[in-house]
Design a protein around this nucleic acid. Structure first.
Lengths: 132, 132
DNA sequence: TTCTGTGCAAATCTTTTGCATGGCA
DNA sequence: TGCCATGCAAAAGATTTGCACAGAA
């Protein structure tokens, strides 16, 4: 919680309860869509507006405090951290962070030097595979 | 053009000028969003409706004739082909197909066996880098 | 006190749906 | 001819904007 506050302190954005609530939600869930953020926050913060969530998501992205990740359904957001890959289950939509092997990192760095990369691996997660 | 027709023939979908136009557009552009498809088609097919594009994109996806690819802006679509990665320029939005090295394929197969994967590499393309 | 952030309501944009008509097989 | 596909208009959903007020620094 204290770290979340410092994310804002290091930016040009002011610290507000709404922003802390959004960051807290993302910290807890790992990845969440606008809708998920809103629905979870409104329970303990009933006066918050959807427009505020949208505005702040944009502001936090611009400051690189959060990142947008890309799944086939809704865009989701996460607190910006070390580059890593995402595994996204095509059935249940669950998102997991994937530690990339050094091999892959090198290989891709070789093909696309000097540029940031993001990797997404779409598949069926264990839980969904077992249910088939 | 003849191949596009056969894509439909092999499916349960009927052959219509609208569907052929959509496939032709995707074949020509490689990747295009709903909006791009609509704007390009309407020039030589003024009576086509946006709703028809939406309905057909859904139908073509369901038949696996086209695939949705995932970029941070709008979803784009392409004619389904061999598994490959996409390089997406974060500045200009250009999408390029990336032939994955066997090394990477093996590596990822090892980590996530028996599941389909899609890889996206976000970076800055050469043209944009030169303009910096 | 100043200026940014919030919340409401309205506007805008995107996507979906229902239905009558048209057109492929 | 029988159905599926189309196109229109309306509905539904998602996102953005303007503005007055509230609250952080």
């Amino acid at each position: 919680m204290k770290q979340l506050k410092s994310l804002l302190e290091e930016s040009t954005l002011k610290i507000t309860p709404q922003r802390l609530a959004i960051l807290k939600e993302l910290g807890k869930k790992g990845h969440a869509s606008i809708e998920e953020i809103y629905e979870n926050i409104i329970e303990f913060f009933p006066s918050i507006s959807l427009a505020t969530i949208y505005k702040n998501i944009t502001a936090l992205k611009d400051e690189n405090i959060i990142s947008e990740i890309c799944i086939h359904e809704k865009p989701k957001f996460e607190i910006t951290k070390e580059p890593h890959a995402h595994f996204i289950c095509k059935k249940c939509g669950k998102v997991e962070d994937v530690p990339l092997s050094d091999l892959i990192k090198e290989e891709i760095e070789k093909q696309y030097p000097d540029s940031k990369k993001e990797l997404y691996i779409y598949g069926i997660c264990k839980a969904c595979k077992d249910n088939e």
